[in-house]
């Protein structure tokens, strides 16, 4: 299986650092960004198989980033992360075109499953 290229976007540096390391140990090629603005700059120059985006971030949140991605015509699947403990925000994101959502703290195996499914759906 091809090594998937993943873009992780979250302002919680320690969280994405550990998550990125865990994914790299499993063969994923992972890039991390700390907010939506940086992520936009990144996806303008590089393509990814799947993006994992936190909803609540300074400067540009996950929903705004998702809208910008869709508006730009980029078809990379987006998996949203929500720390609010309810599915409301995740469902709202899916209505705007997100592939799926996960609640924080995430179940790692579930994330892996969604990454593979999202990349094959693409």
């Amino acid at each position: 299986m091809k090594n998937l290229k993943i873009l992780l976007v979250d302002d919680e540096e320690k969280f994405i650092s550990a998550l990125a390391d865990r994914l790299r140990l499993r063969g994923f090629i992972v890039t991390t960004e700390l907010d939506g603005e940086y992520a936009i700059e990144k996806i303008e120059t590089e393509s990814f198989d799947v993006m994992v985006v936190d909803l609540l971030m300074p400067r540009m949140g996950g929903i705004e980033l998702l809208k910008r991605i869709k508006y730009s015509g980029i078809d990379t699947p987006v998996i949203l992360l929500t720390g609010h403990g309810s599915s409301k925000e995740g469902i709202q994101g899916m209505k705007l075109g997100a592939y799926d959502y996960l609640m924080k703290p995430i179940a790692f195996e579930e994330l892996l499953d969604k990454l593979y499914k999202a990349s094959s759906a693409n």
Binding site: K14, K104, F108
Partner: peptide
């Protein structure tokens, strides 16, 4: 309450991934 719970979830998320990473390295 809502915002602090959100922060708590972020704290749990960090601890959980760090614990997972320790376990990954242990297993390998």
């Amino acid at each position: 309450t809502r915002e602090n719970t959100h922060e708590l979830n972020n704290v749990f998320a960090i601890i959980k991934e760090c614990a997972g990473l320790i376990q990954d390295h242990l297993s390998m």
